[in-house]
């Protein structure tokens, strides 16, 4: 144990530099975020992840955001256990019919202002499952979506760039809109 702690101490920081926010995501967000005048949130967002019937591939990569190389929390982004503490719902999966109600209730339990991010190709439009009667077919069929992060699954870097774009937009909007 002591050896491990010592090694961690001498080897320096493993966390990598931040990627730039995604341009395309910034453009998608510009339209939506600036419409509302939100109270100032500072540079921090709390995220509640909701698996709405994913294959779990998206969750694996969202999890990876927490590892020491990406270290999501240094950006003021953190995952919270309850929608009542969340600013952002990060939703994966094609929205299975069986998860629809739970997703809607989670959204209602999230206080305003709030943003919805659809994570992965399934969440965009149902992806491979679009034709299935067991799926609603994309998060936007159920909730207003502010940002889509593409990929199957999106890599941690792509996820990070999308979330950083959201953070920038919200912060800029809060500055512009005043309190």
């Amino acid at each position: 144990m002591r050896r491990l702690l010592f090694k961690s101490f001498v080897q320096g920081t493993l966390t990598e530099p931040a990627p730039a926010p995604d341009e395309r995501a910034l453009a998608e967000l510009a339209a939506r975020v600036s419409q509302a005048s939100h109270r100032r949130l500072g540079r921090a967002l709390s995220i509640r992840e909701v698996d709405a019937g994913s294959c779990n591939g998206c969750e694996l990569e969202i999890h990876a955001l927490g590892n020491v190389l990406y270290d999501l929390e240094r950006f003021g982004l953190r995952f919270v256990a309850s929608p009542r503490h969340a600013d952002v719902l990060l939703v994966t999966g094609p929205v299975s019919v069986n998860m629809r109600e739970a997703l809607e209730r989670t959204y209602r339990a999230t206080p305003d202002p709030k943003w919805v991010v659809a994570c992965g190709d399934c969440a965009r439009d149902g992806g491979l499952y679009a034709a299935s009667p067991a799926c609603v077919g994309g998060v936007s069929k159920v909730l207003p979506v502010d940002l889509h992060i593409p990929g199957c699954p999106p890599t941690p870097v792509v996820l990070l760039r999308g979330l950083l774009a959201l953070l920038e937009s919200v912060a800029a909007d809060a500055r512009g809109g005043g309190t």
Binding site: D51, G53, C55, C58, L60, S96, N98, A134
Partner: peptide
Amino acid sequence: YAHKGVNALMAGASLERAAALAGRLSGD
């Protein structure tokens, strides 16, 4: 809760599409 109707989607699918569905049965 994660039921997506995979067996029904498989029925009649091309081999390529079915392989993609199989590869997403459980992402891990």
